[in-house]
Design a protein around this nucleic acid. Sequence first.
DNA 1: GGAAAAATGAGCAACGCACCTCAGAAGATC
DNA 2: GATCTTCTGAGGTGCGTTGCTCATTTTTCC
Lengths: 352, 352
Amino acid sequence: MRRVTIHDVAEAAGVSLATVDRVMNGRPGVRKTTIEKVRQAAETLNYTPDVFAAGLAKKRLYRFHFLIPDGPNAFMEDLSREARSHAVTMSGARMHVHVEPIDAFDGHRVAGTLAMLDRSACDGVAVVAPAFPEVRAAIDRLQARGVPVVTLVSDHPASTRQHFVGIDNIAAGRTAGRLMGRFLPKAPATIGLIAGSLGLRDHSDRYAGCREVVERDFPHLKLLKVREGRDDNARNADLVKKMLAEHPDLAGFYNIGAGSRGMIAALQASGRSGDIVCIGHELTPHTREALMSDVLDAVIAQDPGHEIRSAIRVLKALCDGVPIIEGQERIRIDVFLKDNLPDISELPDLPG
Amino acid sequence: MRRVTIHDVAEAAGVSLATVDRVMNGRPGVRKTTIEKVRQAAETLNYTPDVFAAGLAKKRLYRFHFLIPDGPNAFMEDLSREARSHAVTMSGARMHVHVEPIDAFDGHRVAGTLAMLDRSACDGVAVVAPAFPEVRAAIDRLQARGVPVVTLVSDHPASTRQHFVGIDNIAAGRTAGRLMGRFLPKAPATIGLIAGSLGLRDHSDRYAGCREVVERDFPHLKLLKVREGRDDNARNADLVKKMLAEHPDLAGFYNIGAGSRGMIAALQASGRSGDIVCIGHELTPHTREALMSDVLDAVIAQDPGHEIRSAIRVLKALCDGVPIIEGQERIRIDVFLKDNLPDISELPDLPG
DNA sequence: GGAAAAATGAGCAACGCACCTCAGAAGATC
DNA sequence: GATCTTCTGAGGTGCGTTGCTCATTTTTCC
């Protein structure tokens, strides 16, 4: 079972290696009938180019920049850790993955960072795009300069970015809404909602999804106005405390964004966590522990490892000009209860 | 930013290319101190072998056999389709993936198929292992012949198989149990359980997990004895009809195995699907539709695409003698509600 | 039929590594 | 210090492409 090589194709088509090469790589100067002959031969022999040989010969180098927020956010830390970990494992595959921390709340700085990139330094960019117009403009300019851009986790749908790597946040919100509705008894009750900011696209999408489901399928539940805690634990704790005091019939909390730790702490301190259905996002040591101790009832999550790997695959496909397999690149919405938590050992090791 | 090659390592270590090669490939005849020198140089230069060049030079061929049940089981069909689809896409990476249909209910035949494989024809086997002792013995013998074996979807923990690619079925059962408990009101009720056969390991594991959670956290729910429908739609429909008749307070169904279609049909026919919480396994066109029409309340699933890709990665790692990254290979338990169903377009296309 | 243009053949040098041989140097042993 | 053993260096070849060049053949068109 030897591999089929271009030699075999050349022989079968009755042409030379050079011609096969011209056809395979779309180079000019081949008659249409000859092209067809070669195509036929390749088809019947079931020829597929050897990726190793091609990779070696092309001596292409993929230099990707990942712009990921830093700061005290466990999910972003995981994302960044995964990216750095892949920088190591992929370096043998001619990929240089550079992770650049950004400040998600400073649109100017992020736009500035994007503005400094160009084709000479970078073959693709993945960015957790904060929802500032200047960021969108910077993405568009970067694309115009010929550098493919994908958005990561948080999208800018109106931009020219090639692809979005992340979950369908409307569906995530719907899922949270349904779990809330079904976990609660079928009786009138009030639900508290906390977001980082409704200016963030992922947060507003989740809210829209949750609201849609609750209003349609659980009309006995009343959603309170969304409070914005800027993903800050202290602020979120404060908000939870206030809402609990103001609404004695409060039966559920949905934290749309990060900073679940603050909500968890406040709820635990209130002593009412047993009666209150509480749903948050992202699997972190804190949400994990809160699930185990029944403070949190469900966690909606996305897998940072999958997202990084998907972003790398997509950027590579864009560089190579090959189509993206949409099915493989769709990021699943993970639903975690205390019963299906993955082992902690899943975090990748980083050398040094 | 040129790649670091063995030339650089050789120079840095002050030795020749041949010596670097000896060290890198564990060939004999190098002094310990020299080995250390080379290791150091490689380390400080951050050398990683070029996978393309190495792959080309090694001219290794990976021939993997996937033994997957055929028959009218949508999940197994998906699994098989994914495997065949990867047979195409991976052929450029020197991988030959051969999909062999097996009869999961005929242990002798499966064992016979395994017995016919050896190193001369095959470098690795992934098998959906039915729980027969002769299958286990055949797996052990195949391993002894030097062919690495991984089990897929359904495990044989007592065998010498190198790895299991599939979900933690106990956790899956626990998840189903908790969803059942939380979706139902906090009142005494009866739950019907259907499995393909408790002789199948995945089914018995799921049952154990479900029972554990229900008995501990929802003691007001009474689990009926598990009925075995052999994953057959007609039989399952029959079982559901009987149980509904026998138990007027029946408030939930958990179909532990395949054949959800039968359960769905019977439930729909009974006109009681609105009051009954119903949970099944695996995402198929039927379970998908049943979720949308509120007949099914939740589906616990595993992603066949992930499983095939993971099996291929693991087999390749076993062939190369490199360690398996456990974290990347853990298969997630998917929880689907009507709100987070992935698009249908995820199915891979098969040429021809 | 002849000139110009287009198509094709032949061949070569990378690419980075694996794997091999053979000669020669360094080290151990007495 | 001679001998034997163990290490090491130098060099070559092959892996299947890519991406050239240059010569040669075939086709096209006037």
